[in-house]
Amino acid sequence: MSDNTTYGLAADFENPLALMKAAEKCRDEGFKSWDCITPFPVHGLDDAMGLKRSKVPFFTFIGGSIGFCTGTFIAWYMNAFDYPLIVGGKPFFSPVFPFPVMYELTILLAALSTIAGMFILNGLPRHYHPVMKAKNFAGTTDDILRITIEASDPLYDSDKTKAFLHEIGGTNIQELED
């Protein structure tokens, strides 16, 4: 099997602690394109993998700011610019009475852009991924904890990486097709 049809290597681990230890070793070894597949969230795995904080909050902030400005703008445009109208003796525009509009739009666009940001950063929607071709893939939604190292990683070398996965305690080591 030549390298350009190989996606990478996968290895299974006994329990979350073993996975965590292995993840720390992968991180220290310097791998960049690799991932852990677990059937449930494992607390502390982000640190063990050396992941940086998610960039999703950035999308949330931008979305919220746009929402706030939009709310302010439409309240001003409709009530004070396009069709000035006296309602309840209030000024045409004031930051007080349209505030519910402003913050509701802030929340709405912040929430929507959070979801959008999550989809963009995860490359979703996506219907196929090479790890799905692995043996016992269904087991990773049940009781199998798996580490995959991708062939695109600069440190990847079919034999050496296989030995490395074996050394850090991985079992059922298998090659994944692209």
Partner: peptide
């Protein structure tokens, strides 16, 4: 705090 102000401001 804003809700309190807002209700009083609107009812006037």
């Amino acid at each position: 705090s804003f809700s309190q102000y807002f209700l009083i401001y609107n009812a006037n």
